[in-house]
């Protein structure tokens, strides 16, 4: 890095980045719903949204208008404050988590020569912070389900607790092995560790798969979409929500999907390093897009599991695997 370049972290820069993250990720989260509907439709040989705008692209706007203008209903016996706060928790934590993940390589704005690191704040415990934030996000469903005085909501939050108890240990343990190899908790260090072109997934395939599984549970995606499974508990924790409050849950969920995609691509798939002739920013977009597609693909292909099966899977299969993986990694690292 050039000495002539201006030092980066200024308050203005951080605010601009925060606003950019908010704007871009909400837009992408909205767009994600469109992509999800389209891909799921294609996988079932349907057409998907079709009539609003070219290829149904403006369906997003139609949905947005609907969400914004819908009547905001708070059920009679609900705890009003918690009912109102819960969606904000989900959405806010999802965005806060995104503040500590780097997406693009650092770059210099042309003409003004301002050097910009493309991360809102490079916390040195980045991974811990992001995981913690995403875990805190589950308080949204938990409180929402309990506040709305609806039995389905209550079941939804009970399932949230189960989910929470199950995947959290797997996420941590599966990331522990790569953290041991890299020796840092900062995403930027992970990225520079893989800058020679060997992706960590080659050393840690098991950890990668475990992390993906736990990530699906964390983002509440099929096969672990227990929280609001329509066929069983009406709509789970969002049964009583409508309009923009429901929309915030939705945006939070999609933002979390993107976060998981970003973490998986930075920690395991070589991050935003250049690869062959492709510059880093194209690579990371491609990786995130693929991981996002994988989530939709899995949703189209696999049935979902029962809550007890999720617990069984996490505690009896995934956690032992993760522990063994950590131990073997440790032994190999000591031997070398």
């Amino acid at each position: 890095m050039d000495a002539t370049m201006l030092p980066e972290v200024t308050a203005v820069g951080v605010i601009i980045k925060a606003i950019l993250i908010l704007a871009v990720i909400s837009a992408i989260a909205g767009f994600g719903t469109y992509i999800e509907r389209k891909i799921l439709a294609f996988m079932q040989r349907r057409l998907g949204p079709q009539h609003v705008g070219p290829y149904g692209l403006l369906q997003l706007i139609a949905d947005g208008i609907k969400l914004f203008t819908k009547e905001d209903i708070i059920p009679q016996n609900a705890n009003r404050i918690i009912f109102a706060v819960a969606p904000v928790i989900t959405a806010a934590t999802a965005f806060i988590a995104l503040g500590a993940v780097p997406v693009f390589p650092d770059f210099t704005i042309p003409f003004v020569d301002v050097y910009v690191p493309s991360i809102a704040s490079d916390v040195n415990v980045g991974i811990l912070f992001v995981l913690g934030m995403m875990a805190a996000g589950l308080y949204g469903p938990l409180l929402a389900g309990m506040a709305q005085s609806n039995k389905w909501g209550l079941l939804g939050s009970a399932r949230t607790a189960i989910q929470f108890l199950s995947y959290e240990v797997v996420t941590g343990l599966s990331l522990l092995a790569p953290i041991m190899i890299v020796g840092s908790l900062s995403f930027v260090d992970f990225n520079s560790y893989q800058s020679n072109g060997t992706w960590l997934v080659l050393y840690q395939p098991i950890a990668f798969i475990l992390f993906l599984i736990a990530g699906y549970a964390e983002t509440n995606r099929t096969p672990f979409d227990l929280l609001e499974h329509e066929a069983e508990i009406v709509s789970g924790y969002v049964t009583e929500y409508s309009g923009m409050r429901w929309g915030m849950f939705f945006i939070g969920e999609y933002a979390n999907m993107i976060t998981i995609g970003i973490i998986a691509s930075i920690v395991f798939l070589g991050g935003y390093n250049d690869w062959w002739i492709f510059p880093g920013w194209i690579m990371i977009i491609a990786k995130i897009a693929f991981l996002f597609f994988l989530m939709l693909w899995v949703r189209a292909a696999w049935p979902h599991v029962r809550p007890d099966q999720l617990m069984w899977l996490c505690w009896k299969v995934l956690m032992p695997l993760a522990v063994i993986n950590v131990v073997i990694t440790g032994i190999v690292m000591m031997a070398i």
């Binding site: 891909i39 294609f42 079932q44 040989r45 349907r46 693909w297 292909a301 696999w302």
Partner: peptide, 26 residues
């Protein structure tokens, strides 16, 4: 088996998009 499931859905997507086997009648 899980991968077979994935392959089936992907195959159907390819069928629908590129081999003109879309089910929908508009």
């Amino acid at each position: 088996e899980l991968c077979i499931g994935l392959w089936v859905t992907l195959r159907e997507m390819i069928n629908a998009l590129f081999r003109k086997k879309m089910h929908t009648t508009q």
